[in-house]
C-alpha cells in the first residue's frame, strides 16, 4: 500500500489509544469523562463549594468500610455482639475499619448539613436547581435513616434500647405509624428477625437509594452547573465584565484600556 510506515512512537501511541478508542466507539464513556473533566465552571468557585464532593468522599468511605464489615458481621441476635467483638479485637485492622465506619457516619452527616447550609446561603437552590435541592433533602433523610438503622447492629444495650424507643416513636405517627413500626420490626415486637431486617435496610435498601440519588444529584450538578458565590463581583450570570464583549473575547474597549496601561 501507499501508506507510509508508522514510526515507533506512533505505533506506541496507537497501541495505548486502541483500548480507549475501542471503549469510546462502543460506549461514548470516554467522551462523557472528558466532558465531565473539562466542562467549564465559574472562575470564582471557592473552597465552600468542595463540601459536596467531601460528602461524596465520606459516603464512599462508608461504602468501602461497610463492605469490609459485612464480610465479618453476623446479623443474628445470638452472634451479632460476638462478631462485633471479634472485628474490634481479633481481626487485623478490624478496629480501624469499624472505627472509620462508626465515625465516618458522623462526618457524613455533619458534611451533609454543612453542604446544605452552603447551598442555602449561596441561594443555589433557586431556579433551575429546585429539583436538585429536593434530591438533596431526600439524601439527608436517607442518611439519617442509615444512622438510625446502623445504630442497632452492634446489638449492645445502647443499640437495643435506643432502637426500641425509636421504633415506638415511629409507631405513634398517625395512620402510617403502626405499619412503619411493624415493617421495621418484622412483627409486632422486636424479635430475632428485626436485626437482620435492619441489616438489610441498612446495607442494601437505603445505600442503593442513596447511590441512585447521588447519581441524579451529580447529573443535575453537571447539567445545570455550579453557582458563583453571590458576593462575587464577577459572578456568572451578571453579564459581561467591563472590557468584555458579550461573546467573552476581550473587545476593543478592553484592548484600548490595556494600551493605556490601566
Amino acid at each position: 500500500m501507499a501508506t507510509r510506515r508508522l514510526t515507533r512512537k506512533e505505533q506506541m501511541q496507537q497501541a495505548i489509544l486502541y483500548p480507549v478508542d475501542w471503549l469510546e466507539e462502543r460506549s461514548g464513556l470516554v467522551g462523557a469523562v472528558k466532558y465531565f473533566l473539562f466542562r467549564k465552571v465559574p472562575g470564582d468557585t471557592n473552597w465552600f463549594q468542595t463540601l459536596g464532593s467531601a460528602t461524596l468522599t465520606a459516603f464512599i468511605v462508608q461504602a468501602l468500610t461497610g463492605t469490609i464489615l459485612a464480610m465479618y458481621y453476623k446479623p443474628d441476635p445470638n452472634s451479632a455482639y460476638d462478631s462485633i467483638q471479634h472485628i474490634t479485637n481479633d481481626i487485623w485492622a478490624g478496629w480501624l475499619v469499624r472505627g472509620m465506619h462508626r465515625w465516618g457516619a458522623s462526618v457524613f452527616i455533619i458534611l451533609m448539613f454543612m453542604h446544605m447550609g452552603r447551598v442555602f446561603l449561596f441561594g443555589a437552590y433557586k431556579y433551575p436547581r429546585e429539583l436538585n435541592w429536593i434530591i438533596g433533602v431526600l439524601l439527608l433523610a436517607s442518611g439519617l435513616g442509615e444512622g438510625f438503622t446502623g445504630y442497632l447492629l452492634p446489638w449492645d444495650q445502647t443499640a437495643y434500647w435506643a432502637t426500641v424507643v425509636g421504633i415506638n416513636i415511629n409507631g405513634t405517627a398517625p395512620f402510617l405509624g403502626p405499619f412503619l413500626a411493624q415493617f421495621l420490626q418484622g412483627g409486632t415486637y422486636i424479635n430475632a428477625d428485626t436485626l437482620s431486617r435492619f441489616y438489610a435496610i441498612h446495607m442494601l435498601m437505603i445505600p442503593g437509594a442513596i447511590a441512585a440519588l447521588i447519581g441524579l444529584h451529580l447529573y443535575l450538578v453537571i447539567r445545570l452547573g455550579v453557582t458563583s458565590p453571590p458576593w462575587s463581583k464577577e459572578a456568572a450570570g451578571t453579564g459581561p465584565l467591563d472590557g468584555e464583549t458579550p461573546n467573552g473575547k476581550v473587545g476593543r474597549a478592553g484592548l484600548s484600556r490595556f494600551r493605556r496601561g490601566r
Binding site: L37, F38, A54, P246
Partner: peptide, 30 residues
Amino acid sequence: FKQYKDDVESRGKPFYPFAMFHDTVMSLVV
C-alpha cells in the same frame, strides 16, 4: 440562567485541574 451559561462559557475555567484540585484536597482531609 441563560446569561449564567454564557458567562461560564466565556470566562469560566475548566473543572480539571482548578476545581478538582480543591475537591481532592478536601476529600483527603475528610
